[in-house]
């Protein structure tokens, strides 16, 4: 379990990193927290010739409130930073809820927000959160800057909209509003494990009923999946009874999701857990009410 030989450069700026990637085409990779990349390299599943370390670009670690009341989270924000930040807790409680399900303390101390999104593990928590929150992904590349909606960012298992030579620099999202509520839940065999099934949800509430909701399920497909039919059932004005809405949503879920079989869990099991999770997360959101 030793990586194949590789070179290493510490990037001095984002543009330096972009240049190094461009100069080394296929053979170069960004390294951020290294928590996923080093494992892949040790397994020799990934053998980049050059590692471009963006770890010292401190400004990529900032969490700031922008003029237009959005929260901008730098790509190098550590999972532990998300957990500790009062801004995150106040303005995007979903991330705060989710982050404690990501791995263990030691990994959260090094793993980064940008790394997690770029790595795009289908069982990861943060990709589902940014989809539920309809965040935007900010990218710098050889052709300049661009912004991709999170809902278009994840394209497959470990595959994203990031092009060759591009660096994810930040995520932006709306701060939570007074009538909004978010919910999070997952089933993992052990504390800190990747989820068997997870759900990140964000919605609006009025008079004890959801009026809008986004449900991003993860570990049920090659990317996080927005369960649109279930979401529609949950906010269906024609169904006033929340229990009935939930029942319909649970039924609709099998149209939204088509989870895979794998050695750890059958598709039927994942589907059942997704239904259970839907009930619990929505129940929790309704119980807590808006603003959290």
């Amino acid at each position: 379990m030793k990586p194949a030989p590789f070179d290493y450069v510490r990037a001095e700026s984002v543009h330096h990193a972009v240049r190094l990637l461009a100069e080394n085409k296929d053979g170069a990779r960004i390294i951020a927290g290294g928590q996923s990349l080093m494992t892949a390299m040790n397994f020799r599943m990934s053998s980049p010739a050059l590692l471009v370390d963006i770890g010292e670009l401190e400004h990529l670690r900032d969490i700031t409130l922008t003029a237009d009341a959005r929260l901008r989270i730098g790509a190098l924000t550590r999972h532990a930073d998300l957990d500790a930040s009062p801004d995150i807790a106040a303005h995007t409680p979903l991330l705060r809820k989710a982050i404690r399900h990501v791995a263990h303390t030691a990994i959260r101390n090094r793993g980064t927000f940008g790394g997690s999104l770029s790595h795009a593990d289908p069982a990861s928590e943060l990709p589902a959160c940014v989809m539920a929150l309809d965040a935007t992904i900010h990218i710098v590349g050889p052709d300049g800057d661009r912004v991709v909606p999170a809902r278009h960012f994840f394209t497959g298992v470990h595959e994203t909209a990031l092009g060759a030579g591009e660096v994810l620099v930040a995520v932006e999202l709306d701060v939570i509003k007074a009538d909004e509520v978010s919910g999070f839940g997952e089933f993992a065999r052990r504390q800190g494990d990747y989820a068997m099934v997870g759900l990140a949800a964000h919605g609006r509430i009025a008079a004890g009923l959801l009026t809008a909701v986004d449900l991003a399920f993860f570990a049920v497909g090659s990317t996080p999946i927005l369960a649109r039919r279930a979401a529609a059932a949950l906010v269906d004005p024609a169904t006033p009874d929340p229990a009935q809405r939930l029942q319909r949503a649970r039924e609709a879920l099998s149209l939204d999701l088509d989870p895979p079989d794998d050695p750890q869990s059958s598709a039927a099991m994942r589907m059942e857990l997704a239904r259970v999770l839907l009930g619990r997360v929505v129940g929790d959101m309704l119980a807590r009410g808006a603003g959290a």
Binding site: F187, R189, M196, S265, S266, A268, M269, E272
Partner: peptide, 13 residues
Amino acid sequence: PERILRALGKLAG
């Protein structure tokens, strides 16, 4: 968990 749900008859197949 899966074996338990199967024993409970909650999973088809």
